[in-house]
């Protein structure tokens, strides 16, 4: 009983209260102020930028995750454990450093800086930089969900399909994909949440140009530093809603996955 109290107290204090605080602050000055804040042109442009970065980064990392999981889970090759560790690497790199490395490559003083300037191309303080930084920080999400799942499922079903004459793509679409769809969805949900919420890496490469290269988290920072707290929390509440939707989807997918596993378990018994 005491332990339950301690655990729930800790969770309430550190998780529930901050979440409630965001919505309270966002709506404190009334619905009108809230609506004005989120329909401000700069806010809308930040929303578009965030959606654009996620719309490019998530599909690319999805394709990568599936390819990496196929190679690692279905085949044996030397250096496999090194490769899996390297895929996880972006998780242990500080987001600030993730931004920094792209500045070192594409910034004005960077390796490709002079060349980019000659050709009138901008990567840093522009959209490509934001997309690159977002891809880097969300890199492992899909792969690390799929690899253990596909390893556990083995290769028998795919081998059977191939022996029966199915082509590689057909095997993938008809056999592998239905088996991994929940894990895949789970990875995509987490990848998307991080892509839309990334702050540190994007802060380094974006240049904070209002209406141009601001994402939602950066817009929140600007509003907050200008003491426009109600507006900052209004935009923050949109991202908090995204977090809640993410948690709800994650919960639903996990339940679905568990039910599928239970059915499989019963069948094999």
């Amino acid at each position: 009983m005491l332990l339950i109290g301690v655990a729930l107290g800790f969770l309430t204090l550190f998780l529930f209260v901050p979440l409630a605080f965001v919505f309270h602050q966002a709506l404190r000055k009334g619905v009108d102020v809230y609506l004005t804040a989120i329909s401000d042109p700069d806010a809308l442009s930040a929303v578009r930028m965030t959606l654009l970065a996620a719309a490019i980064a998530v599909p690319l990392n999805l394709v990568f995750g599936v390819a990496a999981a196929w190679a690692i889970a279905k085949f044996n090759f030397p250096g496999k454990s090194v490769l899996t560790t390297l895929i996880d690497l972006p998780f242990s790199v500080s987001p600030v450093i993730a931004g920094l490395i792209f500045v070192l490559l594409f910034g004005l003083q960077g390796w490709f800086g002079p060349w980019l300037r000659e050709h009138d191309l901008k990567v840093i303080f522009a959209v490509p930089g934001i997309v690159l930084a977002t891809i880097f920080v969300t890199f492992p999400f899909v792969a690390r969900e799929l690899i253990p799942l596909m390893q556990a499922q083995g290769t028998e079903q795919e081998e059977a399909a191939t022996v029966l004459g199915a082509s590689g793509w057909k095997t993938f679409w008809r056999v592998t994909l239905p088996n991994i769809k929940w894990g895949l969805l789970y990875g995509v949900i987490l990848c998307n949440a991080r892509a839309m919420g990334e702050f540190g890496a994007v802060a380094v490469v974006s240049g904070h140009i209002r209406g141009e290269t601001n994402t939602m988290p950066l817009h929140i920072e600007i509003l907050y530093n200008e003491y426009q707290f109600a507006a900052a929390f209004a935009v923050a509440s949109l991202l908090a809603l995204l977090a809640l939707v993410t948690l709800a989807l994650k919960f639903a997918v996990e339940r679905r996955q568990r039910r599928v596993d239970d059915q499989d378990g019963r069948r094999s018994r």
Binding site: F21, A193, M216, L247
Partner: peptide
């Protein structure tokens, strides 16, 4: 409570930052 444990994974860090600061 179990679902809420993952909140810090899902909540963008800037949002967590201003919420904790305000609190």
């Amino acid at each position: 409570a179990d679902a809420l444990v993952d909140l810090p994974f899902a909540l963008p860090t800037a949002v967590a930052g201003i919420a904790l600061t305000g609190l």
